[in-house]
């Protein structure tokens, strides 16, 4: 811990001395981009301690594995002539794995923002050329991109399986593109909600519990209601409208109506008006989350 030796009055000078910096200084946009990549790495625990890798990587494996299995099954059964389409529609995959996706968001959304709030690191960011809007945008984009990667890789894996099984390429490609669009929507909606909840508390543990509770409870409640009303009452229309009330069923509804996917919920949006409403609400949730995040970070005392 001794300071750099000063230049000796005689003899060899080892002290490098202080070197100024004359090189380029990047502007806001590039800095925001650097924060984006840094946060994206953090979403998967890359570049951090081994412990912070366990959860995201473990969940990534849990979410990817079934897709791998499905891809293999596709190839095997198609080669025996037993199949002419994939066993599981690409677009249905996020919904099938939704508990795991919810846990991923529950752990990684707080990782992205609660730490900065808890350790009070925000003043260090904001005393730099970065503005609050850059911070929020970078974090939101990073988490959404992370979730998209989480969903896209399994979907693409199943697609490759379908191609290897020599299923009709045009049809499969069309399906996979639509599924990826759906995955993008899921990412935006879930990341927005998760980030907003996480930013409300500096206590990471509570943020995790709150996010998972909201995502899982809402799905559970909506499914339960749809079950009773849709099947018990045979009122699929109302059951369909109920899908607006949970993020997962909301995006599933948009997928079903706008992208022609099979519904994974008990009931999809009944009719075109409902479909439009679903799309509108989805857009509102995304934009609304972003705006609320901006407001939250404007209010945070630095």
């Amino acid at each position: 811990m001794s300071p750099q030796p000063e230049a000796a009055p005689s003899g060899v000078i080892h002290d490098i001395g202080y070197r100024g910096y004359d090189g380029p200084r990047l502007g806001r946009n590039l800095v925001a981009r650097a924060l984006f990549f840094h946060s994206l790495r953090g979403v998967f625990g890359i570049g951090r301690s081994a412990r912070s890798k366990v959860m995201p990587m473990g969940l990534f494996a849990v979410i990817w594995l079934p897709a791998l299995v499905i891809a293999v099954i596709t190839v095997v059964t198609a080669s025996q002539g037993l199949l002419n389409d994939v066993p599981v529609q690409f677009a249905r995959y996020p919904m099938l794995l939704q508990p795991a996706v919810a846990i991923f968001l529950g752990t990684q959304a707080p990782q992205a923002v609660s730490l900065d709030l808890r350790y009070n690191t925000l003043p260090l960011y904001l005393s730099r050329p970065l503005e609050r809007v850059d911070y929020v945008t970078a974090k939101y984009a990073a988490l959404a991109t992370g979730v998209f990667i989480l969903l896209a890789i399994p979907i693409l894996t199943m697609y490759i399986g379908a191609l290897l099984a020599e299923l009709p390429a045009g049809e499969q490609t069309g399906d996979v593109v639509l599924a990826l669009i759906g995955a993008a929507l899921f990412s935006l909606v879930l990341a927005g909600i998760g980030l907003l909840i996480a930013s409300l508390t500096a206590r990471r543990g509570f943020g995790v519990a709150a996010i998972i509770t909201v995502l899982v409870m809402s799905y559970s409640v909506v499914s339960g209601l749809q079950g009773i009303i849709g099947h018990g009452q045979s009122d699929l229309a109302t059951a369909g409208w109920l899908g607006l009330l949970s993020p997962m069923t909301l995006v599933d509804g948009v997928q079903t109506w706008a992208l022609g996917a099979e519904s994974s919920a008990v009931a999809g949006p009944p009719g075109d008006l409902a479909g439009l409403v679903f799309c509108l609400v989805t857009a509102t949730v995304v934009v609304g989350s972003y705006l609320c995040l901006m407001y939250r970070y404007r209010k945070v005392t630095v």
Binding site: Y21, G23, P24, R25, L26, G27, L30, V31, A34, L35, H38, L124, Y125, R128, P129, L130
Partner: peptide, 12 residues
């Protein structure tokens, strides 16, 4: 990380 947030390129 803070250096990059100040606008320095990665190597610098």
């Amino acid at each position: 990380h803070m250096a990059r947030m100040s606008g320095l390129p990665a190597d610098a």
